[in-house]
Design a protein around this nucleic acid. Structure first.
Lengths: 209, 209, 209, 209
DNA sequence: GATGAATGAGTCTTCATTCAT
DNA sequence: GATGAATGAAGACTCATTCAT
């Protein structure tokens, strides 16, 4: 049944089109930003023409929004993972920050998502809002949970940063921005940064009698 | 002497035009970004027409670059101030971070400058480069100077963050990005953040026997 | 088969568009010159809009150059024809000049091409250069060939104009310029001019013992 | 009386301004053509500003027309000279053509005037008309006068070119156009051309029994 | 489903012209 | 007389979007 197989491949192709487009859109939007990206460039990248894009997505705006949704894998897994962490609370914090680094610094999608939120936020306020709900809020909550449990267990002192966990964890953002700006020109030693960061804040949080 | 006064007004006006334009450009570029800002909007903001802008600035690109230069007040003053700090090294670090907050978080120009570096960096690589030279490098150097002196004085332990000061100080960037994104919708308590931040890292750096 | 016919029309249309545009461009450029011609006027002339022109031609400059190429039918045929002339050398010169008149005076494209070379030459030096290679050089060579053969055959005396054929044939240019300037207002009797021209120079070249 | 002298110089200056402007306009229009020449460039050339030009000339169009008038020295002198020629009619024709060469080929103003008539003629029809009246008509009349006198004197045969003198004299235009187009790239030997031209047509016109 | 020719609104940029000083 | 800041009409060019095939 070669005909059927052929048809199956074609159908498969079609079923993949939207994804293909979203991924091509991601690449182009990353390269040039929303305004400067042309629908035609996205089309070319997957070997189709403008019309095809418009068959699947109403407008450029819509395509951008869908693309954002497509690369957004909420932090819910971080929260979930955070709950499953074991060991001392210092170890848990270390692993939690590790998860953060793996997402924000190492995972290209998340990194660029953050960039989009910054660069196109004024054009797409819903994107900013969603990002807040799906990333920031769960992330803060998870961090606070661990920290408070650490305090309760007597492992951490009741520092003001317990209630404002980004004040402790936030250096991650510095590295992230550095990477965004100078990744190619001034490469950073991510591991060393991570170790230095964790070292300072754990020493800063640990309870001493 | 109405004639003289009138002349003075004219000359005065002329002398101020470039500044006026640069400031209007700043506001518009902040609002809409480089691409989406129209020269005409900038003109309207100060009650003139397109042509006037072009009388003072060759192209939109040039205007943007000059605007960036106009709002860029290098960190050199931070470095200078950093050298004049006195007191214990903990106090000095506290004051140094305070300077940072005052610039990056509180000063609108610096905050938006950072945003421009992020959002328009790919279109204006020179801007990114200049920013690196004039902001990042001096900032890191100043931070390291204080930290190393603190270690030499026996006040700080020789933590890995001494050599990578952004790992300690970087939470500032988190707040900065938060402000950039949610300043209006989700206001932050900057002072509390600052205190929590300083508290953690000073406790993390201090030498204990 | 209306569908097929329709398809054919479309494809046909598309295939003709570039030519259609080039011809409309020719008319407009002839009427107003390069600078004063608006792309939109060219478009209107064939009932399309600006965008369509830009779909086929990158820039106005490019369109002009292609238009020039499109109306340029090199003199190579004149050279070829010149070689096939027969009869006395006087007859051959007569026929050669006739070819010239047919091209430069009667053929609108060639006439306007020359005008473009004069009027837009400083903006399009390549056009001038190409014109020199494709028109002037072959033309002079062909003229000299006949004249020298005429001398060799003893039919023409060895006048200085044998080596500088434009000195004999050049009156054509006078008529051409007259036509360019006053064609409508002060019409010329081309045939009479031609006869007078040929009469003078043949009488001037003929060898008499 | 230094004050008076100064004033005199200034007044002199002012009196010369229009001429100065017209000459600067000539240079700029020659270089760039009517449309592409900017009033400001003309002003700069004589060290004044736009406003000054407009003080003396209503519009750019007007300035161009006046400039044309300024460089137009009618052929009336040629006609006058033509009447004063003496010697054989062959010698007179030779001298008449010499006058033509001196004007059309050697005199920059006349050469560029012809170019303007060709390039800007459609924008300035009055210029073309005036040129016809002041240059072409007297030139043809003068030529015909000599030729007819030569026939009457039995020196020239009654060739058709007697009534259509441009058919005999017109090679001048060929050289003129060559110079306009290739003056710099492919220099011509004007004297040789002149001799070849005169040689052919005199031999072509001379009466032989 | 896919194509790509066609549209037209939108923007930068230029420059003749004006006019207060 | 001269200046030059300001105006605004005009035109090249781009690109999201449409739609007949």
């Amino acid at each position: 049944m070669p005909a059927k197989k052929q048809l199956g491949q074609r159908a498969q192709r079609k079923a993949q089109r939207p994804q293909e487009i979203l991924e091509a859109a991601f690449e182009e939007f990353v390269e040039s930003g929303y305004v400067a990206t042309r629908i035609e460039d996205i089309a070319k990248r997957i070997g189709v023409t403008k019309g095809t894009i418009y068959f699947y997505f109403e407008t450029k705006e819509r395509l951008f929004e869908e693309m954002i949704r497509h690369i957004s894998v909420p932090f819910s897994d971080i929260s979930a993972n955070a709950k499953n962490l074991s060991g001392t609370y210092s170890e848990r914090i270390r692993m939690f920050i590790r998860l953060l680094y793996d997402r924000i610094i190492m995972d290209r999608n998340t990194r660029e998502l953050l960039r989009f939120v910054i660069t196109e936020g004024s054009r797409f306020p819903q994107v900013v809002d969603r990002h807040h709900e799906e990333f920031i809020v769960p992330f803060k909550a998870a961090a606070r949970d661990i920290l408070e449990a650490g305090v309760a267990a007597g492992e951490f002192r009741n520092a003001p940063a317990i209630k404002i966990p980004d004040a402790a964890i936030g250096a991650t953002m510095m590295l992230c921005v550095w990477q965004m700006l100078f990744a190619d020109r001034k490469p950073q030693d991510v591991e060393a940064f991570f170790e230095a960061h964790v070292d300072v804040i754990l020493n800063g949080l640990i309870a001493r009698d």
